[in-house]
Design a protein around this nucleic acid. Sequence first.
DNA 1: GTCTATATTTGGATAGAC
DNA 2: GTCTATCCAAATATAGAC
Lengths: 205, 205
Amino acid sequence: MPENRDIKTESPTKTKIRKVASTLFSQYGYKGTSVRKIAAEVGIRESALYNHFKNKEEIFLDIAQEIFSSPFHFSHDEIQELALRGKPFLQKFTMHYKMLTFDKSSESMFRLLMIELMQNQELREQFMSQFHDANIKVLSEGFFVMMQNNLIRSSDPMMIAYEFISTLFYIRLQVTVLKFDTKPVNHLTTQFEKHVDFFWESIKV
Amino acid sequence: MPENRDIKTESPTKTKIRKVASTLFSQYGYKGTSVRKIAAEVGIRESALYNHFKNKEEIFLDIAQEIFSSPFHFSHDEIQELALRGKPFLQKFTMHYKMLTFDKSSESMFRLLMIELMQNQELREQFMSQFHDANIKVLSEGFFVMMQNNLIRSSDPMMIAYEFISTLFYIRLQVTVLKFDTKPVNHLTTQFEKHVDFFWESIKV
DNA sequence: GTCTATATTTGGATAGAC
DNA sequence: GTCTATCCAAATATAGAC
């Protein structure tokens, strides 16, 4: 737990290492980033770097834990309340997802996740539990409430949740891929809203 | 163009190099696979390997071109005919997609694509054009026909195509991730069909 | 076409002075 | 905490004999 990462007590150098390494890892991946390059960009020698971190892997793990630090905070009560209103529930969830997609920091962490997804079993498992299961849980709870209240057609809530989240993920991946090459993503900015509209029309009674 | 890759005239060693390298690259990625290891697994020295390929990158590119060698073959006429029947069009397209998802060779090429997606601009661009645009084109053509014939509710065909393909992609990614750790994917085998059913109910008039 | 030998570079990591 | 110096391993690639 990062209680020890007290921004006040931590040395500025360590903070800078984290920042530099984060940028490099999220661009070139673990193997593509050398300790040499991190040190050079920080402005110190490699040996000095080892005063702050045990080794390269420790730096990576320190950064990697940030990938899943922005979970979806929807309380049970919040879900119940929003779901009773139907579409606003989907809108709120989607706006949160969209925000993460375009947030600089979340964006680079998502890129890192995609880069290392097939190289790191731990990340794959966290991807499944944090990116998939967690979202499915929140969404299916909402859809369940909507069904109970006859707002949407009756079906399997988890299946509907799966259908809903998959498009959000796909948009996010596309945005990430395009932005990596600094290509325009204007055409995708409204895609999230379009998805909600289309989906709501599909399921409402 | 691989006219020169005549299976008859090509040396068995070169064929074996391709096979071994393909397996390694699709497991460990470009950086994670060394020429040493390829040579060792083939059963020759590294130096001998350079008699068949100019360098490591040439081996990779040779293999990488296979990633996009299984495009969707839907002729204009075929689309027209199937789309006139509505749901069968979606079923046919989806079954093709499902087949690729579970085909051993396509599976490992898809994994390679995911591994290198964020490391290789060329692959990103091909991903966009071959995996995304090509699918959107076929699907939106089909949806357009369905709208003209009043089989589905009127809307933007490309937007509907986007919605449809995103779920297929998401299922494929999940299958790939799970299989990488030899985890069960039974629960996902019927997901494709469920998606078609749900989607058709969503758009049919 | 394959081998041995070797050149060269890059990368992770440590020892010890300041 | 940072530096210089150094070590060691791994990786790409080439030369030249067989």
